[in-house]
Design a protein around this nucleic acid. Structure first.
Lengths: 342, 342
DNA sequence: TTGTAGGCGTTATCAG
DNA sequence: CTGATAACGCCTACAA
């Protein structure tokens, strides 16, 4: 026998399904005795309303669709954790989809989420998404959408991201104040929103201190290309005295590449990363970090989305919520002779 | 207007819903012309069958429930990635639930998954689950279940795990062959299946080489307790000449603690971990690794489960599938004077 | 070849 | 206070 239904209860108690339904959801005045009977029976047989039937009826699902480029990624898995925590506590379930940095795949997964009657969507755009008309269509159909991390200015939606500008500014300023002048900037593809913001922060800090902005010190690294080494080697030809790597993979790859070339950190070059790696924290490499507030981004994005879904906030009221970053300084701020800190 | 339904098509084409349904799923012989019309119209208006209605009708959902202790965990997120890849290609969607290492929470999420009419369950047991009768009940109701990683011998189900015994044996043997004799073993709570298996492998290797099994060299560390340092310090009092840490957090914590105490690795002690950290690979610390085949475990588990769901494999045919581990030796195998390898 | 009717589990509406 | 009915979207016997 499968799960018990309202019908089963009705039959057993010689009632109609509607009476049982009412008794269970405490609507209309109902005979207290009847209600007691039903509730008791339901409890005894562990009755659970069938969410699928409810979805069909109410045309909603209490499901939130989350679309991320990759699940197996420290940053995104932490964001998902935040989303899950909030969703769970507010009675929603989460279905996760991966776009694998592919626009086509993103289209597909969005369709699936819609087909599943997700009540709302949380999306971090794929690395190859430039056109967001698929999302605009959905918005016009009144589907709540909140973007996080990788957002788009072409969509009038609520966005939740780290405060990339301020974080990058602080990181760059920190390096400048440590006496660095030729700061290399290693980042992901240029068309992604966070790249732009971080680059802007970097640039603003340079300007504040009257340092030149040198294109040669900027490098964009594609996704999936795990080998950061050649890029770093390339940059070393520009004789930088610091590296600012805007991402986990880039920062750690940079660290590894510099070690391999026996470039002393932070004596020869300083290194700071825009990262999210508890592992790196644990190992405490000679690399400072601007920490991405992944968990909080997930929590806030989920809260906002659920507010939208439940009508606690008007739709189509775009905006940008920036979650502050935190800088963790691991190298001493001034070059310190020849002692390698490990 | 929301998504188009069969009814809409029927109305537009002056047909009955059943005809449309048949045309779309190519059943019964149908007038080729009618069929063409329907299919065309459906394509033009981007018709998608409502999976919720289908679920209600067919009492299945093409959804696989995955229950892991934590999502934001390198190991599990990789497993999920493997599960997702296989599920996707075989037309299933994945709903992920976290048990947060809590038995009560596991019960709840299992119920939710069942309520959602998941066609099958992939579970890695929570750290506090010892009683699996909730799962046995479901099995008796013919719900396919495959356990992975943290399995239980109390449930007659298919299990997919890393070959923990062989991996631990190889790691220990490697240490012994490097001249180590007092090998500390740092592991997670004892009641979890993988702990036992790894400990058995460790023990078997000691036995093979006639080394004593010393309880004082074994330490169990609870979950969530991020600070491995005191445990390592404690173990150092037992003057071990090697550490075998059975898990990411433990291995990296151990590495950090040893560095902090200025214990030279691998000169003073060798370190080998049962891990799954691409980050550590990148940083290449002086720690060898028995790599957990997370992705493959996920893939195999998903394949097995879907085979069960689709009846390609008989239910209630328990068994254990062991995915081989791979050892990555990062320290030189013999103690090598005083040169710290970074 | 096509249409009609019934049902999956639930609730809202309307009638008793 | 309770029961019958219809509806959500889809499929499938059965009837025509």
């Amino acid at each position: 026998m499968d799960a018990i239904t309202i019908k089963d209860i009705a039959r057993a108690l010689n009632l109609s399904t509607s009476t049982v339904s009412r008794a269970l959801r405490d609507s209309y005045e109902i005979n207290p005795e009847t209600k007691r009977l039903v509730v008791e029976y339901a409890a005894r047989f562990n009755y659970r309303p069938n969410p699928i039937a409810l979805s069909l009826k109410e045309n909603r699902s209490r499901v939130i669709g989350v679309i991320v480029p990759q699940i197996a990624n420290n940053y995104f898995s932490q964001v998902i954790n935040g989303i899950d925590a909030v969703s769970y506590s507010r009675g929603y379930q989460v279905i996760i989809f991966q776009s694998h940095e592919s626009y086509e795949r993103e289209l597909l997964t969005v369709q699936q989420a819609v087909a599943r009657k997700a009540d709302g969507l949380l999306i971090s755009l794929s690395g190859s998404t430039s056109d967001v008309s698929h999302l605009r269509d959905l918005q016009e159909r009144k589907l709540p959408i909140v973007l996080f991390d990788r957002v788009s200015k072409d969509l009038d939606s609520l966005c939740v991201t780290a405060d990339n500008f301020t974080g990058a500014f602080a990181a760059t300023e920190h390096l400048i104040q440590s006496g660095r002048r030729r700061i290399a900037h290693l980042t992901i593809p240029s068309y992604i929103s966070i790249t732009q913001e971080r680059l802007a922060g970097y640039r603003a800090a340079l300007e504040k201190y009257g340092l030149p902005y040198d294109e040669n010190l900027i490098r964009y690294s594609e996704f999936g290309q795990n080998n950061v080494e050649p890029v770093v080697n390339d940059l070393l030809d520009q004789s930088p005295d610091a590296f600012f790597a805007a991402g986990d993979r880039l920062a750690l790859g940079c660290l590894a590449a510099l070690k391999k070339r026996n470039v002393a950190i932070p004596e020869a070059v300083s290194l700071i990363g825009f990262t999210n790696t508890p592992v790196a924290d644990l190992l405490a490499p000679p690399m400072s970090t601007v920490e991405q507030p992944a968990l909080e981004i997930g929590q806030v994005a989920a809260e906002q989305l659920i507010d939208l879904i439940e009508g606690k906030r008007k739709l189509a009221q775009p905006g940008m919520i920036r979650i502050p970053t935190r800088m963790i300084v691991r190298e001493s701020s001034q070059p310190v002779g020849n002692i390698l800190q490990v």
